[in-house]
Write a protein that binds this DNA or RNA. Structure first.
Lengths: 212, 212
DNA sequence: ACCTGAACACCGTTCAAGT
DNA sequence: ACCTGAACACCGTTCAAGT
């Protein structure tokens, strides 16, 4: 006997994302999500295969927020930059989901479409085949790596500890042993994440412009 | 009454890493580790604060395998390259630990020492302060991002699915809609991870050489 | 100082039954 | 087709007691 679903997959996705945004990764459980949706845990299994499947759904909810103009400009660097920035911003909007984005694999068309758009831009730098593959791997690595670095890297600013404290911790290292770390910790005080990402991205784009 | 520890912290670290290497992340539990060490779960709490602490220990076991020569050459690019490669290789030697490396933060001297060595190399490109910070963030992002990409990126080759299958999956996409993805999937067939990383790294080093 | 068993409050998921 | 309660086999961790 056909029964209408109690809630849509989209509703479930939205509720799961809200749970992680608000309570972090450990706030996401089948049971917690179920009660947020007003049902029992087992109901979720009508919409989702298992917990990992649910996590992929959360990842895709975040990635879906990356939007870009479909056409392309006459400057491939500008296109690649726009694409990279929109993904990076989507990740930054949901910092507590980043660990999931880094570790779960999605086969959603969102990922393929983004990849294809980025490849279209990079191809216009004059690359194809192996060189295009390397360029693609490098730029996606840079995006994910910057997101990771803010979350868990040496100068990570999130994850509970306030930014100023992390910087202070590095600033107070022995200056003779760690002059470089002290230096960048000072610089980090009057910097911001988007600027750092943009300038880091520009370094790679410079490399992509030069080599052939 | 002073009792000698039943096992050292190093022994615990080693056993935990072995557990993850062999059975993956889900094979690591307080209970499984305890029985691998021949005791009850609660004994572990004499050596480790909690599960997260244990995970950081595993991360540090992997990072500790990154070794580099202390002196520096007359070529900063060569030094940065060596440092990046040694970390990347350490990560690759323990693919199932990578998700932990991406998401857990360590305050071990290993991390600080690596950072300082890398900064020393990058500083010799003529950078300091904010520009040095950006260069550092970019190169660490590239390293971690490449490790992430192999694990969970669009063309990821690990995570159960064999490399050939992933590539085949992309190769069989509609060529008119995803020409770029099909192209790099073909290229990926006769490529290897270290080559891709080396060449991706070179792109960033090119960018670091040019800009000032 | 270090070890440890029992117990508690959670998990994800199987199963079998409902509509 | 979709829902759901009971039950199972796990977790990490607190507590209280041992040496």
């Amino acid at each position: 006997m056909g029964r209408p679903p109690k809630f849509s997959r989209a509703r479930l996705q939205e509720a799961a994302l809200a749970l992680v945004d608000e309570h972090g990764l450990e706030g996401l459980s089948m049971r917690a999500l179920a009660s947020a949706l007003g049902t029992g845990p087992m109901t979720l299994y009508n919409h989702v295969a298992n917990r990992e499947d649910l996590e992929v759904l959360v990842v895709e909810a975040v990635l879906a927020q990356a939007q870009w103009s479909r056409g392309c400009s006459d400057d491939w660097r500008e296109d690649a930059r726009e694409l990279a920035l929109t993904v990076w911003r989507a990740l930054r909007a949901h910092p507590r989901v980043v660990p999931l984005v880094l570790t779960r694999r999605s086969r959603s068309p969102i990922v393929a479409d983004f990849g294809e758009a980025m490849l279209a831009a990079l191809a216009r730098s004059g690359r194809s085949g192996h060189a295009l593959l390397v360029a693609f791997r490098a730029i996606t690595a840079l995006i994910m790596g910057f997101a990771q670095g803010e979350l868990a890297g040496p100068l990570a600013t999130s994850a509970g500890e306030p930014a100023d404290e992390v910087i202070e911790r590095f600033r107070s290292l022995p200056r003779d042993r760690y002059p470089g770390l002290v230096d960048i910790a000072e610089a980090a005080r009057e910097s911001d994440p988007e600027r750092e990402f943009r300038e880091g991205l520009e370094l790679l784009l410079d490399g992509l412009s030069r080599a052939r």
